[in-house]
């Protein structure tokens, strides 16, 4: 059992470079910070500033070029594929695009969250143990969608699908919840529901939540603490208490650190990295945005 205040994530000099030589892109540049148990942290920054890449490193989905850290007691640099998989089972991950299997029922999608703790492949709701199905239904109740359990997942609205994705992540009984722009493709009302859900669940279960966002106001009212990334570097790490909007906006507008890389290379790096999030409402800095793209 973990104590309150214990460190859940500790990153030390995490650096990630995509590609080789002159055309390589520095996606994460010497990132170091700690997250304690129960903290609700928002990760801010322009599209391509490294938010998604950082979250994927914490989940063990990518391996660092240098540096590393400890997540839930697992040393990221030292862990092999099997150990990283065991780590992933203890970390819930919520995606921007929900990533539900549209043809399957809502309940089966939630049950899939338990695959890591089950042996062998599963196809069809009846192949999941009864206990798993019951737990999945509890999860759906928690996100307010139990009545929709046997609908096809693609008949739900975007906000509902994201709540199903949250329920799926809860099936892992995670020690840490990561969310990558979970509301970037939702309308304001659904966004509010999903963000409240993430925070409430985090607080009730003493769960650490690390969530990348690009709405500054939402981050200010939602998180305990804000970590700001720019061009792969941590440029801001402050508690939200007493913080104003203007303090944050510097993250987007202050261009004293010029980073210019050829845009054509950025495209290759984009393909190499994970899906970049689109539709960012970044006010300025096209070169910055292009430069940092994974």
């Amino acid at each position: 059992m973990t104590e309150a205040g214990e460190t859940v994530v500790r990153l030390e000099g995490l650096t990630k470079r995509f590609g080789e030589g002159d055309t390589s892109i520095l996606a994460l540049d010497d990132v170091s910070f700690e997250v304690r148990r129960g903290e609700i942290v928002a990760l801010l920054g322009l599209s391509g500033s490294g938010k998604s890449t950082l979250l994927q490193h914490i989940d063990g989905l990518q391996t660092a070029t240098s540096g590393g850290g400890t997540v839930l007691g697992t040393d990221l640099a030292a862990a092999g594929p099997a150990e990283l998989r065991r780590l992933r089972r203890r970390i819930g991950f919520v995606f921007q695009q929900f990533h539900l299997v549209g043809r399957l029922t809502v309940l089966e999608n939630v049950c899939q969250g338990a695959l890591g703790s089950l042996r062998g492949p599963r196809l069809g709701l009846f192949t999941y143990p009864k206990a798993v199905r019951e737990r999945a239904l509890e999860g759906l109740e928690r996100v307010g969608l139990a009545d929709w359990a046997f609908q096809r997942a693609d008949t739900l609205s975007g906000g509902q699908q994201q709540r199903v994705a949250v329920a799926r992540a809860l099936m892992q009984e995670p020690g840490l919840l990561l969310a990558d722009e979970p509301v970037a493709s939702l309308d304001p009302e659904s966004s509010g529901q999903v963000m409240r859900l993430l925070k409430d669940i985090g607080q009730q279960r003493g769960l650490t939540v690390l969530c990348s966002l690009h709405q500054v106001d939402l981050a200010l009212s939602w998180a305990d603490r804000i970590v700001g990334l720019r061009a792969g570097r941590v440029v801001l790490d402050v508690p939200t208490h007493g913080l104003g909007r203007d303090d944050i906006m510097r993250l987007y507008t202050d261009l004293e650190e010029e980073v210019v890389l050829p845009a054509s290379d950025a495209v290759d790096a984009d393909a190499a990295g994970a899906k970049a999030s689109d539709g960012d409402e970044a006010p300025t800095g096209v070169s910055l945005e292009e430069a940092g793209r994974r």
Partner: peptide
């Protein structure tokens, strides 16, 4: 990818 992220 979601299932992979959940350790499947």
């Amino acid at each position: 990818n979601a299932l992979r992220a959940a350790g499947a």
